[in-house]
Design a binder for these strands. Structure first.
Length: 306
DNA sequence: AAAGGCTGCAACCGCAGAGGA
DNA sequence: ATCCTCTGCGGTTGCAGCCTT
């Protein structure tokens, strides 16, 4: 991708820019054989003319077998939006909730897709609140308008979730305080005792905490709130599905969402409207996404909870 | 068909924290 | 207590490829 920069004395031997297939093979086979060890000494041992940092990045973001590549599912996008509302730009913390995705991938997807989508919806992607200057905000248009009381509920839920996490962290000494700093500006790195053996932070299960509170705000169909994050489900009236709790069905791809529309009434959910954002950037039908509910229901979960 | 604009994303950069000397 | 090295993080860059005119 990136062309070689001006060559410094030390950089005479260090290659930069895009990785070649050959380099990938060398790095992958070395790590497979010897493990990672010290990244700084790895290039020399492996016979690569790269800096250790570059090798680490290439492995972590591309070559590692623990990486799932390809399009983000609707479910993953929902999770990212929810997590961003709680954590801000703490991509590494989100990784724990998005199996096999890298922080770089999440960050890129947020910056290139989700952020723009929220902005088009008239939502400030940093605060997750409606923008005051959003004259064409779909949430502010039409007869429904922005539901401020739901926004207040959302903010209240968010703060309460943070407070709960702080209480838990004090008792377990696992998670850093989320209230010392605003989540959107927090820049606290996990300490070593917050990391698992794999180097990842302990799963804080922020979403679970959040849902625990939101469950009290909205009328949910039977749902297992103790489920891991990956079991975000859409309500699905009248469908008995063994994969999910009664009345819920897991949707992981846009194709499944479309199929759902084809086969069910889906009266409260206009998935097409959502998909329009993905495919064409059309903003006009956001009210359709919202159905009878409010913006956050639409943005976060598509379905009409209330 | 060509030129210019836009988008996606791999890769780089600088910085901060942890831990060892 | 201080310095140094290593690692990991978030922000940014810039090219390839696609889209529009």
């Amino acid at each position: 991708m990136r062309p070689p920069s001006p060559i410094g004395e030390k950089e005479m031997v260090l290659k930069r820019g895009s990785w070649t297939e050959e380099e990938d093979k060398v790095l992958a086979s070395y790590i497979k054989k010897h493990g990672v060890g010290s990244w700084n000494s790895l290039p020399e041992k492996a016979g690569l003319q790269r800096c250790g940092k570059s090798c680490r990045l290439r492995w972590m973001n591309y070559l590692s077998p623990d990486i799932k590549r390809g399009k983000f599912s609707l479910q993953e996008e929902q999770t990212i939006i929810q997590l961003h509302a709680l954590l801000g730009n703490r991509w590494s913390a989100m990784v724990a909730h998005l199996p096999k995705r890298t922080d770089n991938e999440i960050k890129n997807h947020w910056n290139t897709h989700l952020k723009k989508r929220l902005m088009k919806m008239g939502i400030d992607p940093m605060t997750h609140k409606p923008r005051s200057d959003a004259s064409t905000s779909p949430c502010g248009r039409g007869k429904k308008g922005w539901n401020l009381s739901h926004m207040a509920q959302w903010e209240s839920a968010r703060l309460e979730a943070e407070a709960r996490l702080v209480r838990e962290s004090r008792s377990k000494q696992i998670v850093p305080s989320l209230t010392n700093q605003h989540p959107l500006t927090q820049h606290t790195r996990p300490t070593s005792n917050q990391l698992t053996r794999s180097g990842r932070p302990e799963c804080l299960d922020i979403l679970k905490a959040w849902r625990g509170i939101v469950a009290g705000m909205f009328v949910f169909p039977t749902q297992d709130l103790s489920s891991p994050v990956s079991t975000l489900c859409f309500p699905f009236n009248g469908l008995a599905d063994t994969e999910c709790s009664a009345g819920w069905r897991e949707i992981t791809t846009t194709e499944e969402a479309e199929e759902l529309l084809d086969t069910e009434s889906a009266s409260d959910v206009d998935v097409d409207a959502w998909l329009d954002f993905e495919d064409s950037g059309v903003v006009g039908n956001y009210d359709g996404v919202l159905g009878n509910s409010n913006c956050w229901d639409g943005v976060l979960n598509l379905p009409n909870f209330s």
